[in-house]
Design a binder for these strands. Structure first.
Length: 421
RNA sequence: GUGGGAUUAGUUCAGCUGGUUAGAGCGCUAGUUUGUGGCACUAGAAAUCAUGGGUUCGAAUCCCAUAUCCCACCCCA
């Protein structure tokens, strides 16, 4: 029987990893510049954490989690996202007594049992950021600007920032009632999903894909018009901050994030060409989350970015950069004596941090050169009896064909500083 | 969970209405007379035609089931 990668997983091949590494490096750099430090959390957690943190009624918890019992009878879940684990760690390690705000970023895999399609996998990668202790809105704007700067650094353009405020539990509760009263008389004209949502989660009816174009939905009262004074002030201040930075955004009253913990600020960075999985990054404020997971009342804000979607978009925009290889020089051997010399020479270069290759396949002279050419190695050096006798090596530049004569003892100096980017 | 399309060398695909040894491009290996590569030319390796049944004298081709992949709904990163 043929064994294949499990459904929803995929290999990230050597031809792709350089781009992943570049993205991770750029993301870390941006975060560091804002005072964020990396946290690494477990791949699996107590199932209760996600039920309490992400929310029992969400689709993610109800039908998408990889949950199993371990040999000790504990209910374990492969993390479906990163925020809950970071919050758990924040509480468990007493980070509330650290100087606030406590800011962390992460680079993780996450797991969701979903039917897959473009930009959606069962094992996927997220870059994320969480900041605890500040009520904002200045930090809201900072968090958003980490994404903006990261995208700039990756050469991504035309990503639309959409923001909204979904208020605090108080204004949302009042609004939910209003919404139910508004829709109830018209419910029979709406889709089956919406009929279900009416009592359970009327907020979602607003961004229904089926009924979304209907006038009933378009004219529905909007949460953003019914915020309490404090939430309204917060949202206005966030806009002022973004305007001050010069980050473009559109206000999208229909953004309703699917995880229960969000309050007030919610935002998405949306691609204009990745199709329906266009949300590259989504996040928001979660002022009640730490408390609901068992910690002290602590405001927080964060986001997660889908790395697969990020790279999909990079590719679509042709912004993906060709990685530079580290191997500087290929040694071609003309005799057995030359091979011994090359073995030693390669070792010496590598000890000094210079990348090099030599034949490992028993190839003939000409085939060795062919390999060096195809492998795109920038320099080639042929070692034969002449070189062994004279100690003078000819280094050929494969791009322009020019040759430079170098003493065997001067090889390291010749390539020094050449290999770094 | 719902719906549509697909599955043939490593890879991208061809193979018409069933007919004998299943093809090509790219990639890979070797060579084109052992002191200079990419190109070109020649040769070669590589496929239980996704799996299991069925129809038939005969199935990559027709039928059924299963699996996997892609796309959309839903959900979300």
């Amino acid at each position: 029987m043929k064994i294949t990668a499990p459904k929803g997983t995929r290999d990230i091949l050597p031809s792709e990893t350089p781009l992943w590494q570049l993205a991770a490096k750029n993301f870390a750099e941006v975060c560091h510049n804002f005072g964020y430090e990396e946290i690494r959390i477990p791949t699996f957690e107590d199932t209760n954490l996600f039920q309490r943190g992400v929310g029992d009624t969400t689709d993610v918890v109800q039908k998408e989690m990889y949950t199993f019992e371990d040999k000790g009878g504990r209910s374990i879940t492969l993390r479906p996202e990163g925020t809950a684990g970071v919050v758990r760690s924040y509480i468990e390690n007493g980070m509330s007594s650290l100087p606030a705000p406590v800011r962390m970023y992460y680079d993780i895999t996450a797991f969701r049992y979903e039917k897959m399609q473009k930009g959606r996998y069962r094992e996927f990668h997220q870059f994320g950021v969480e900041a605890f202790g500040s009520k904002g809105p200045e930090i809201d704007a900072e968090v958003i600007s980490t994404v903006d700067i990261f995208f700039k650094k990756m050469g991504l353009k035309n990503i639309e920032l959409r923001i909204n405020s979904i208020g605090c539990p108080n204004c949302r509760k009042a609004y939910n009632e209003q919404l139910k009263d508004y829709f109830r008389p018209h419910i029979s004209t709406m889709c089956a999903d919406c009929q279900n949502r009416l009592e359970r989660n009327p907020l979602r009816m607003i961004d229904c894909k089926v009924d979304g174009e209907k006038d009933i939905v378009k004219n529905a009262p909007r949460l953003i018009d019914h915020l309490c004074d404090e939430c309204k002030e917060h949202f206005e201040a966030l806009k002022t901050q973004l305007d001050a930075i010069g980050i473009n955004y559109t206000i999208d009253p229909n953004i309703v994030r699917g995880l229960d913990y969000y309050t007030r600020t919610v935002f998405e960075f949306v691609s204009k060409n990745v199709g329906t999985q266009g949300t590259i990054c989504g996040g928001g404020r979660y002022d009640g989350l730490v408390e609901s997971v068992g910690g002290p009342a602590t405001p927080g804000i964060g986001y997660a970015m889908g790395v697969e979607r990020l790279l999909l978009e990079l590719e679509a925009q042709g912004a993906a950069v060709a990685p530079k290889k580290n191997v500087q020089v290929y040694f071609v051997a003309m005799s057995d004596n030359a091979k011994d010399f090359i073995t030693k020479t390669c070792y010496d270069l590598r000890v000094n941090g210079i990348g090099c290759e030599r034949d490992l396949m028993g190839r003939a002279f000409r085939a060795q050169m062919k390999y060096a050419g195809k492998a795109n190695i920038p320099y080639m050096c042929v070692i034969g009896d002449d070189e062994l006798a004279s100690g003078k090596l000819k280094i050929k530049n494969m791009t322009d064909g020019t040759e430079t004569e170098v003493e065997a003892s001067g090889l390291v100096a010749f390539f020094e500083g050449n290999g770094e980017e």
